[in-house]
Write a protein that binds this DNA or RNA. Structure first.
Length: 831
RNA sequence: GGGGGAGUGGCGGAACCGGCAGACGCGGGGGACUUAAAAUCCCCUGCCCGAAAGGGCAUCCGGGUUCGAGUCCCGGCUCCCCCA
């Protein structure tokens, strides 16, 4: 047969069209069959995609196609996390309408996803900026208000002076605004909060019931929730009613508390402050969280508190290493047994009193556990018993009580921004904050707004939006002008795919019962404690109001690593793209100035000029090769290094396979007609590959699966064509199809298949064919390789030994170790 | 400061549960084809000694357990990510 050239452009476009016209990715939620919900985290529509973004979508597509072949009904939807700052920043900078900006980007990204042939059910597409979507975001918010979970309060918030907006804790990275890098400071504003803290224990307990989640993600969530068990203890302060309460995880060390420290924001500070303290508090307010933790600074207030255990007066200090947001904002300092307190005491000459001893410990080492001493009723108790004993003592004497403190705070959801879900609340002078009733939802975001940041929400300047009537009493009232954090949109979007156009309800409970929990969720690990915690919380809330049948939304979670690439930095020309680097010499040099440039691998990004554009790259090798390469460069959960030159490897593999398949077409037809026969070794390799690739796909071992397919390809080429070649090629098309779908369809058709390969099932390995009949046994002497012998696969140990003994003839063997089917090790006495 | 993860050829990476280290691919070297180049195909390619046969050394470093350690344990170094 004449072998046509591997024209990937034509092949890929042909099948893309065919899949689209046959709607192969569409799923009917009520169709019979086992449902499988495969979800990839929806993206923010930034508009520009590079090859690194492809990995995420490829993984999802491979899983979806594989499951479909295994006979599942697969739900594989896509949507857009379409609200957020970039659209508004573009509006401010370039005067573009945020809506226009967003939908343009969505159009570009959809085109790209289509080029990659990711098989989504586009009928279910959602965009969070669409009123039909954010209506339900508002609806959920009003339900939270009804349940008392959404509330308003004045609070110190992180403030970005550049973006002119508040930032949630997780948007402040190393003291700076996550988006623009400006140093964040603090402000007091009336804000909307969601009481996620009410769910802290449930969120923590639920983690133990998620075996399909990676341990590091669960660990990060545990740390983020931050449960600490301890006690709240009251210290009397002269002239202060009620005294000062502290939280400590170590109430057993109370007898060693020699001073007290208040956070600069502590409410008591204002009333006891002298000038020095006031100055200090002012300065602390200007510092970022990291600066506050860096060095120990503090100031004495001149006041004292009474240690309830010893009756001693201890000085009260104010220091910014104590944070108001954790515990009570005040601590009892035990410098003998706490590192930070110790450092502080040393610096300011405060007394240090040890109340724990351990004779086994090194001299001078700081003790955290041991035996309580100089601690009245606790004396002699080991720490583990001393802690509960201390709590009992406090409670009996009415000085304090056992308490659990959490690190997680309530979720701040207000944004003084335009491009977000309007908070569905009307402020009435008579009735207070009133949720907008369901019949009036959505509260539509008005158009043509002046959204230059002024520190107030842009919506505040739209009189027709603000002025309204109270839904309760009908009197004059004003609308809330803040919008919701975009984490609210994304914490429930996966439910909406079940009913994307339904105007009457968020989704149908019966559908949720069938399709949830999500069988496989795929996304970046950077969402471990933000999105992945919020979406669990939202699901629990929806369950509590009777909507979600499940407590946890995600059965199996996979977090993939990023795609990185070498980036070059020249001292003079800064970041330069690879083509401006002269790599001819021993060291890479800048083509502009000849300086040696620093080459290092970083996450692909426009600023570092180390991105590979998909368009350019796909034009050279095609989508199938690109998909293979992206998944081949390493385990998917680890960061991978992209190398433009190496893409040629998978491409050559496909081209050779293409040619080989055409040359051996009759052998495949013969195999289809006459059944399996022919070269025993190749048949074995084929069935071993079927088994191995299936296991690899189940376990996300895409890199290994591809390597095995390449091995099978090499094996086929090394043989004369016969029916075994046909069998191998037929298997190859199937095994390759989730990874490189276009060529697989083409080969399937070439081999006489009718209809899509994705409807043709998945091959099964025959263990009898896969089994080896002769195996090579390694012969070691003292654990070192000395030779190899061949024995039948089912050979007994004695047989293997007998075969191996000649290799150690004459040596003083003192012990023989046989590992069945693997090796024989002779232990030989040293001369 | 706290937490999570990773160190294997020139490079990306394989190696089941403690049993042949380096699968697969890139790069490199040699050869074939070609007027020539590209493409393609074949062979070689962990390092060191050696003409070869062969030998020695090798999974970040140092110890340990074991007949046997990339894999397990203890100590250290380096890097990455996340959190404060």
């Amino acid at each position: 047969m004449q072998v046509p050239p591997y024209d990937f452009r034509a092949i890929e476009e042909r099948w893309r069209r065919r899949w689209e016209s046959e709607r192969t990715s569409h799923v009917d939620l009520r169709a019979p069959g086992e449902p499988y919900y495969c979800l990839v985290m929806y993206p923010y529509p930034s508009g520009d995609l590079h090859v690194g973004h492809g990995k995420n979508y490829f993984i999802g597509d491979v899983i979806a196609r594989y499951r479909r072949m295994r006979g599942y009904q697969v739900l594989h939807p896509m949507g857009w996390d379409a609200f957020g700052l970039p659209a508004e920043n573009a509006a401010i900078k370039q005067g573009v309408d945020p809506e226009r900006f967003t939908y343009d980007n969505i159009g570009r990204m959809k085109k790209q996803l289509r080029e990659w042939s990711i098989g989504y059910d586009w009928d279910r597409e959602i965009a969070t900026c669409h009123p039909g979507y954010y209506k339900w975001n508002q609806w959920i918010f009003t339900k939270m208000m009804e349940k008392g979970l959404a509330y308003q309060r004045e609070a110190p918030v992180n403030w970005c002076p550049s973006c002119n907006t508040v930032l949630a804790n997780e948007q402040v990275v190393e003291g700076r605004c996550e988006r623009c890098g400006t140093e964040a400071d603090q402000r007091q504003l009336k804000q909307w909060f969601i009481r996620i803290t009410d769910y802290a224990q449930r969120l923590l307990d639920g983690l133990d019931r998620l075996p399909g989640w990676p341990e590091p993600v669960k660990e990060q969530q545990r740390n983020w929730l931050g449960r600490s068990d301890g006690a709240r203890i009251r210290f009397e302060v002269k002239g202060v009613r009620g005294g000062v309460e502290v939280f400590t995880t170590r109430p057993d060390t109370l007898w060693g508390a020699t001073f007290m420290v208040l956070s600069p924001e502590h409410p008591l500070v204002g009333s006891i402050a002298n000038d020095e303290v006031r100055t200090y508090v002012r300065e602390a307010g200007r510092k970022s969280a990291i600066e506050r933790q860096a060095g120990k600074t503090g100031v004495f207030t001149g006041r004292s508190a009474v240690n309830p255990a010893t009756g001693e007066e201890i000085p009260i200090w104010v220091a910014d290493y104590v944070l108001m947001g954790y515990g009570t904002g005040a601590i009892m300092a035990v410098p003998a047994h706490d590192e930070r307190d110790h450092e502080f005491a040393r610096q300011f000459g405060l007394p240090i009193r040890p109340v724990i001893e351990d004779p086994a410990a090194k001299e001078g080492a700081m003790l955290f556990e041991g035996t309580a001493v100089r601690s009245g009723p606790l004396d002699g108790l080991p720490t583990k018993q001393a802690i509960p004993a201390a709590i009992r003592w406090l409670e009996r004497n009415n000085l304090g009580k056992g308490e659990v403190a959490w690190r997680i705070r309530d979720w701040l959801v207000s944004r003084q921004r335009y491009w977000g879900t309007p908070i569905p609340v009307v402020h009435c002078g008579e009735c207070g904050a009133v949720p907008v009733p369901e019949k009036d939802l959505p509260v539509v975001l008005p158009k043509g707004v002046d959204f230059t940041p002024t520190g107030k929400s842009p919506l505040a300047s739209v009189a027709s939006f603000v002025n309204t009537t109270c839904p309760k009493c009908g009197g004059k009232a004003e609308r809330e002008t803040d919008t919701l954090d975009t984490f609210t949109d994304s914490s429930w979007y996966f439910f909406r795919y079940l009913a994307p156009r339904d105007e009457k309800k968020l989704f149908d409970r019966a559908d949720a019962e069938r399709w949830f929990p999500i069988d496989q969720y795929i996304g970046g690990i950077e969402h471990a404690r933000g999105h992945l915690l919020y979406c669990r919380f939202l699901t629990m809330f929806l369950k509590d109001i009777g909507l979600s049948p499940f407590e946890e939304p995600v059965e199996r979670l996979f977090t993939q690593g990023m795609i990185c690439k070498v980036a070059y930095r020249c001292e003079e020309h800064k970041w330069i793209p690879e083509r401006e680097v002269d790599r001819g010499g021993a060291e890479p040099k800048c083509r502009h100035c000849g300086r040696v440039v620093v080459a290092r691998v970083y996450k692909m990004s426009k600023t570092k000029k180390n991105v590979t554009s998909p368009t350019e790259h796909l034009g050279e090798v095609g989508v199938d090769a690109s998909r293979l390469y992206t998944l081949f460069i390493g385990p998917p959960e680890i960061d991978a290094e992209w190398n433009d030159d190496a893409v040629i490897g998978p491409y050559k593999f496909l081209r050779r396979l293409w040619e080989c398949a055409h040359r051996n077409r009759e052998h495949v037809l013969a195999y289809r007609k006459g059944g399996a026969s022919g070269d025993r070794d190749l048949r074995r390799k084929t069935h071993q590959t079927i088994a191995a690739v299936t296991a690899d796909l189940e376990g996300f071992g895409f890199n290994k699966a591809i390597a095995r397919l390449m091995e099978l390809g090499n094996a086929i080429e090394g043989k004369d064509g016969d029916a075994a070649t046909g069998e191998a090629l037929a298997a190859m098309a199937f095994l390759l199809s989730p990874l490189a779908p276009h060529i697989a369809e083409e080969l399937h058709a070439l081999f006489g298949g009718t209809g899509s390969i994705f409807l043709a099932g998945w091959p099964t390995a025959d263990p009898a064919v896969a089994a080896e009949d002769e195996i090579e046994i390694v012969v070691q002497v003292n654990g070192k390789l000395k030779g190899r012998v061949k024995v039948p696969a089912d050979a007994a140990e004695a047989h293997a030994l007998a075969a191996a003994r000649p290799l150690v003839a004459g040596l003083p063997v003192v012990k023989e170790i046989v590992v069945r089917g693997r090796l024989v090790n002779f232990v030989v006495k040293n001369k």
